[in-house]
Structure formats: C-alpha cells, structure tokens
Amino acid sequence: MRLPFLRHAMPMLLAALLLGACHGKDEAAQAGGSTPQAALQASIDLLKAGDFDRLWKHALPPADYANLRADWSLQQRDARPISAADRARFHEAMQKLGGPDAAARLYAELQPKLAAMEQQYKDQLPMLVSVGEAMLKSAVAQSRTLSEARKTQADGVLDVMLPWVRQTPWFDQARAQQAVGVAVATARQLDLKDPDQLHAMDFDATMGKYAVAWGGLKRLLAIYGLSVDDTLDSVKLTPLSNDNGHAVVKIDYTLLGRPLSTEATLVQENGRWYSEDLLQNARQSHRQLQQAATASAPASAGSAVTKD
C-alpha cells in the first residue's frame, strides 16, 4: 500500500468494523449512517463483500473521501522507483504462480520443505509463540497511542489468537495443498503482469485488487480454522450513550469460539454518523501529506531553476 493512511488505518478499520446489528443495506450506498448502529452495519456489509471503494466512501464524509482519492494520486506521483532486484523477484514469483499446473508444481516443491520444517520446528513452535506473545504484550503495554481500554481489548484478542497459532497444524500436508491452490487462484485473479502496473493503477483499480487479495486471505485463514465472516456475523451491538453528536456502542463478538467485546465511538457530522478514530486518522494523514507536498514544492522549484 502506498498511501500511509491506508497502511496504518486498514488494521484499525478491520478491527473497529468487527460489528453488526441492524440490517438496512441502503445505508451502504450513503456516506455515514443515519444512526451509529446503521453506520457500523453498513460498513460490515461492505467489508464482508470486499467492496473497499464503497467502504471508504461510506466510512468517510464526502470531502474526506475526496481528499483520500486526491492523496492517493499525490502518493503515486512520489512512489519509490522499482529496483532491478524487486523487478526480478516479482517476475519470478508471477511465473511460478501463473504458469501451467502452477498449483501442482508449487506443492511438489513445498511438500519436502514442509516435512523438513515440521521435523525441525514442531517442538519449538510453542516456545516461539510464547516468545512472540511476550513481545507483543510488552509492545501493547508500552504503547503511547493506545488507551488503557484499548490495551485491555488488544490483550483479549491476543489471548484468543495466540493459542490458535500454537495449536493450528501449520505443517499439515492436506491444508498446505489447499493453501497453495488458493494462492495460485488469487494470483491469477489479481492478473499483475509487471510491477510497474502497481504504480500505474488509480484508486479504483487498486481497490479492486484489494478486494481480490482480501478474498484470498479469507479463504487461506479458513483453511486453518479462522473464519473472518463467522466472526463478523457473530457481532452484536449495544448502544451505551448518544449525546451532543457523540455516541458510544458496545461491540460483542465471537473470535475462534471465544466471546470478546470492545467499544466504538462515533461522531455525527451533517446528520450522519462516522467512526471518530477513523475520521481523525484520515484528517491527520491528509494534513501531513499536504504539509509534505508544500515543503517539497520550493525545493523542487529551486532545483528546476538551478538546472536552467
């Protein structure tokens, strides 16, 4: 992802949108929601469908959505050039994933490696997960950007996810064969012929590619026992407060069979409801990009004058 806001906001958006309750799919066609619950439900419908363009259009007020698209073009202009090494790796990967009988050939290559990895790492995996757990929980505890409530919520998710990582049969041959098939099918759907194609894509085209990748990721996770859609379908909302254009909603959901809960804060603008965190993040990212563009403009102009 080339746009910093999308890179940082996407995990937050996916976490914040583990929601659902009222139905009302007409909300998905509009910016924001007529109620806090309607705003969240429309977002979850779009997320499940992988309709990322309409998701951003719904999750942000019209002016902020327009800024998001404009910032995308600005970021595209300043994208880092593709190195020869990156280009070579891209072509090699695409040839492996897109060639004839790619799934069978890749699995034939993977099978002996998987057996060797199982022999080498199976007994070490619980220890490695425990080390990772300690590091992740330490990072959460020391975070300066997370509130105490968010830290508690993050710890709850880790307490569910890490046992899944520890217990999942990652070296299972049958699952690996299915996963290879999904990876090959997703790569073919993405239909990326050249790394320059990534730099040339506009916002709409890129959102379409995100949808394909999102669908592939959900299928891969399902192979190993984690159904994203089941989690999204499990969500129940309970309004906690709604006063002076601010609302708080309790979000109960089930992740890997374990009940969890969190809260979402929404704000009302022009009669519609939006995620407060997402809106603040979008506006801060836009300001930073505009400031960076303004700061680089005089330098670019000076460089042009010197060349003349």
Rank of each mutant, 00 (worst) to 15 (best):
R7L: 09
M207H: 05
W273K: 07
D202Y: 01
V180L: 06
L237Q: 15
L68I: 07
Q189L: 09
L6H: 10
D233A: 13
Q120I: 08
T294S: 07
G50E: 06
T145L: 11
K218H: 03
G215P: 03
A39P: 01
A84L: 15
L260S: 05
P112G: 09
L17F: 10
D243G: 00
A29L: 14
V131C: 01
S275K: 00
A16P: 01
D252V: 01
L136I: 12
H246Y: 06
M94W: 04
H286T: 15
A31W: 01
R54H: 13
A247R: 02
T231Y: 00
R188G: 00
L13I: 09
G271W: 07
L6W: 04
Y65N: 08
A295R: 13
V180K: 04
S285P: 02
K209D: 09
A88F: 03
N242G: 07
G245R: 07
G215K: 08
D101R: 14
L106E: 02
T238Q: 15
K307Q: 13
L256F: 08
S275N: 07
A301N: 05
T262M: 12
A49E: 11
S83R: 10
G216R: 01
R258Q: 15
V140A: 10
Q153L: 00
Q177W: 04
L47S: 08
A108G: 04
E27Y: 03
S138Y: 12
A63C: 00
L17H: 10
R144G: 15
I44E: 07
A42W: 02
P11S: 12
S303F: 05
D196Y: 04
V212P: 01
P112D: 08
S43I: 00
Q288Y: 07
G208E: 08
A304Q: 10
P126I: 07
Q284I: 14
A38M: 01
Q177H: 10
L198K: 06
E118K: 12
A247Y: 09
P163M: 12
G208F: 00
G181P: 06
S234Q: 03
Q177G: 03
M10D: 01
D26N: 01
L68R: 04
A154R: 11
L110G: 02
R188D: 04
S261A: 15
C22A: 09
D123I: 02
Q142P: 02
A213S: 12
L106A: 05
M135S: 14
Q153W: 09
H8F: 07
R7M: 09
P259E: 13
S285A: 15
G132H: 05
V140W: 06
L255H: 08
Q290S: 10
S275T: 04
N242P: 00
M127C: 00
P100W: 11
Q173E: 15
L220G: 00
R54F: 03
I251T: 13
M161Y: 03
A149R: 15
G32Y: 04
I44F: 00
V182M: 05
W170V: 14
A85T: 13
L40C: 08
L17I: 01
L14V: 12
G181V: 10
A116L: 12
Y107D: 04
L240G: 02
S138E: 11
D51S: 14
G257F: 02
A70T: 12
G32V: 03
L46H: 06
Q268L: 05
D277H: 11
P62T: 06
P259C: 08
L217S: 01
K250L: 13
S34C: 04
